[in-house]
Amino acid sequence: MSRFLIADTTVDIGALRETLLKPEAGGFCTFEGWVRQTNDGRLVSAIEYEAFAPLAISEGRSILDEVRERFDITATCAMHRTGYLPVGDLAVWIGVAAPHRDAAFKACRYVIDEIKRRVPIWKREHYVDGQIEWVACHHVG
């Protein structure tokens, strides 16, 4: 079981989690990315995400296939939002179930790092002062 979703509306993450419940899994790690109210010291009101969906989905699936090869995990699923998300909204969700916790943590970290590195999704920040800018690339962290 490994699905990568691009969603243009709110997703029920409880339902995503349910799909990963397996009796052979003892550890479950999730990562969520939330729209944060500041970036580089600027006040953010919202983030708009745009995705090249067909390639984002296939690249996302490749990442999930890679974690299944590299780590001893049971099931994984990831979701990335598109559209206009105000501060506090969920932008990305990743869940990894594994027999043991070490693999769950490492695989979950791998997925978010690779999503940020190579999945064709772009964000445009809307600032409280009214300015709007495409974020050129990722900063450390």
Binding site: A91, K123, W134, H138
Partner: peptide
């Protein structure tokens, strides 16, 4: 056609081409 390709990729009638700026999802 929705797959990463080298820049040397030759193009033909009807190809769907997308240039991918540095990504910033997550």
């Amino acid at each position: 056609n929705a797959a990463f390709r080298p820049w040397t990729q030759s193009l033909k009638e009807g190809d769907h081409v997308v240039f991918i700026p540095p990504v910033s999802g997550g």
